[in-house]
Amino acid sequence: MYIDKDMKMADAIHYNYLLLPVINRLGVQLGFGDKNIEKVCQEEEVDLDFFLVIINAFLDHDLNKTLKIQSVSIEKIVDYLKATHQFYLEQMIPEVENRINALIQNFDINQNQFLLVKNFFEEYKKELYLHTQLEEKTVYPYVVDVYQAYQSHQLSQELLDRIKDYPINSYAQEHSDIESKLFDLKNILIKYLPQPKHSYQRNQVLTALFKMENDINDHSRIENMVLVPMISEMEKQLLTKSAQK
């Protein structure tokens, strides 16, 4: 389903509650009454087109359909992606951690099994952190540089070399491992840890993991289907221009 500007903001949330953190990150908080999306965005000074691109990207996996992706500013996408990183590190990771800790407090699993799960998640946490650092310190600044060069028609030699040596596509693979590990952890909890007396605590961990996975998949989708193609196209045009000189 495509969400458009005339839909009530509240209906969008009813349609899929997983949009909650997404609209927060975009600068919209609860309490919007019966206003439609256009009105809420206007009042909160949120870019309407950008808002629609992001929430539709979150809901619908096929981005190519109707969205005005081209009109969206790169800086806004980068800001949004940074906000998702912050959300993972400050909210989702601690939430999962707390729920994993609750497993041992409630004697749901024995000490060794607990350590296995905990260490696995620790490792994951480190990887996720390194990944966000790589993106924020290397990839995003590069993206902004390319965008600005594209806008101003001024391409430095340094950036030109960078485009040739490490184009945006060379980072596209980065996400796969982050997603694989989460996938594995889910299967370990669902299939391979011995049966618990009560499933409740374990369900809690799993629900948190599913939510996190869903959000991370969305993050990759926006990178791989919006950001990377846009930057890739700009790189191509910049290279062609510099060759003509």
Partner: peptide, 22 residues
Amino acid sequence: KLGIKTVSGLTVYAILNKIIQM
């Protein structure tokens, strides 16, 4: 078959199923 992709995931599986010892 297992639905586990990463080496660390496989390691956890192997320990849980006593294929290797800690």
